[in-house]
């Protein structure tokens, strides 16, 4: 049974007016329809949150798991949603934390397979880089090149260009200054471009 079949309320779908869609979600919450509100949020932002997770993690299985976790957490926290931010920003903040957690866990998991149990984390940055490089080599060129960026730069580029998020909103997510994020994106773009050119991709 799908969530929609469970729920007689028709949730708002992706709309050209995100403000109205978010108001509709708030209205569902005010009626204590948490299931309807979550379903609406999944329809509104599910794809975008997945893009964010996949773009950060570059691993489809991990991204799918973290993506689900984001909405499970949203379900838990919805009754306490204060409205101090948009639902979109709120969900992206949850996603950011969960993705960073997943990246850390991945680093720690790799460090367990080193021969020196007492090695600092990451156990061997060069080895981590090699592992990442081997995994990334299986990806399409753009994803491979994105994987070559630091996670925070990759995330900033993707939020900016894929989600059209303003630097101010990005700053709310990351706790960084908008100007710093602008500069980060500006630095990452030529790196990406040159990586793609080196891979034979013409832009």
């Amino acid at each position: 049974m799908t969530p929609t079949e469970d729920n007689p309320t028709t949730p708002p779908r992706a709309s050209s007016d995100p403000g109205a869609a978010e108001q509709a979600v708030l209205a569902l919450l005010e009626r204590d329809d948490r299931r309807g509100a979550l379903t609406a949020l999944m329809r509104l932002y599910g794809d975008a949150i997945y893009r964010h997770c996949y773009g950060t993690l570059l691993d489809a299985d991990l991204a799918a798991d973290v993506h689900q976790t984001v909405f499970v957490e949203a379900w838990r926290d919805l009754p306490r949603f204060s409205g101090r931010s948009s639902f979109k920003t709120w969900l992206f903040a949850i996603a950011r934390h969960r993705c960073l957690d997943a990246l850390k866990i991945g680093r720690r998991r790799r460090s367990r397979f080193t021969t020196d149990d007492d090695a600092p984390e990451p156990a061997d940055p060069a080895r981590d880089a090699e592992t990442d490089l081997a995994a990334r080599s299986m990806l399409p060129p753009l994803e491979n090149c994105l994987g070559g960026l630091r996670a925070e730069s990759r995330t900033a580029v993707l939020l900016r260009f894929q989600e059209s998020m303003s630097y101010e909103d990005m700053g709310k997510l990351t706790g960084e200054l908008a100007g710093s994020l602008q500069a980060r994106v500006a630095r990452a773009m030529p790196v990406l471009r040159k990586c793609l050119e080196a891979a034979g991709v013409s832009l």
Partner: peptide, 22 residues
Amino acid sequence: LSARLVETGARWQPPGDWEARV
């Protein structure tokens, strides 16, 4: 590059049954 990022992102889709899994 910006256009390619958007185009690539559109292909990053969650599994079809993800809402039910949640």
